[in-house]
Design a protein around this nucleic acid. Structure first.
Lengths: 144, 144
DNA sequence: TGTAGTTGCTCTAGCAACTAGAGGTTCAAG
DNA sequence: CTTGAACCTCTAGTTGCTAGAGCAACTACA
């Protein structure tokens, strides 16, 4: 039985990826160039579908394409060690945690800026003052 | 008394900005082209220093350059309304909050992936399984 | 005044991960 | 056999910088 072949648009629908993105993955080497139809159109097999799903899950987790490439390489060696896969995930978790911490600081600063309610003129706008050079109570608060 | 003029490197030092970044701000129009020395080098005044500090504070808060440009425009009209400045900050706060929520979800998923400790071979690696297509207990947990 | 060393100049290209558009070809259904 | 959707390649744009090449200007010291 001939295996099912997917056109690029089908692959896109099945994985929630835009068509140009799939072609982009090919150009950067994270997805292998597939077979082509007689007329030159891409025809993907089930393995490519799996691979693309893997990529998309990785992206959804915020992994970069180079990390995903490494993880795919590791997957291809089923008896190889997976310490590196672990390390990639762990490092990424650390980055996510650092990012959360940074954003929580920002959130606090923005909330501080916005806490001072009514003011009409730009001249005395708390938001603008926070960004300007004077060391007011406001901008001090902003610095935490 | 002649006002103090700053070379681009001084401005960089005073604001913690790299020199090419300052030039970049000029090309994208967020910092006005300054006077030049006889030999053609940039000479900044105190107002430019203030403006650059404003930009840097905005960037540190995660604001985009187009938002910062708007905020600078508003600042230049001291008697104009500052509702828009408020709106920019508020919208950005919402974005930051959404980002935090997203990252917290990711953190949970990554922690779940990493929770399963010992495993040596890629074949049975929890991290790789989470990214692969099968609906295992692991990948279900990953989906929350 | 000479000169060396630092700093400055412009221009181009690269990063990440796509996205959008132009202009043209192939496929599949009726 | 025709039509319309889907496909093709190629180029350029997005954001906020950063890096490098190759050259000019400024400053301090002798």
């Amino acid at each position: 039985m001939a295996a099912r072949a997917y056109a690029i648009g089908e692959l896109a629908r099945l994985t929630g990826t835009k068509v140009p993105t799939i072609r982009y993955y090919e150009t950067v080497g994270v997805l292998a160039p597939p077979e082509r139809s007689v007329g030159g159109q891409r025809r993907y097999d089930a393995a490519a579908l799996d691979r693309l799903r893997f990529i998309r899950r990785g992206r959804a987790l915020g992994l970069g394409l180079s990390d995903i490439r490494r993880l795919l390489d590791i997957t291809e060696q089923p008896h190889g060690p997976c310490a590196e896969a672990d390390a990639i995930a762990r490092r990424h978790l650390e980055e996510v945690e650092a990012q959360i911490a940074r954003l929580e600081t920002l959130r606090g600063q923005l909330q501080g800026m916005l806490a001072n309610g009514a003011h009409e003129e730009a001249r005395s706008c708390a938001v603008l003052e926070s960004l300007s050079e004077h060391e007011t109570g406001l901008s001090k608060r902003l610095k935490n």
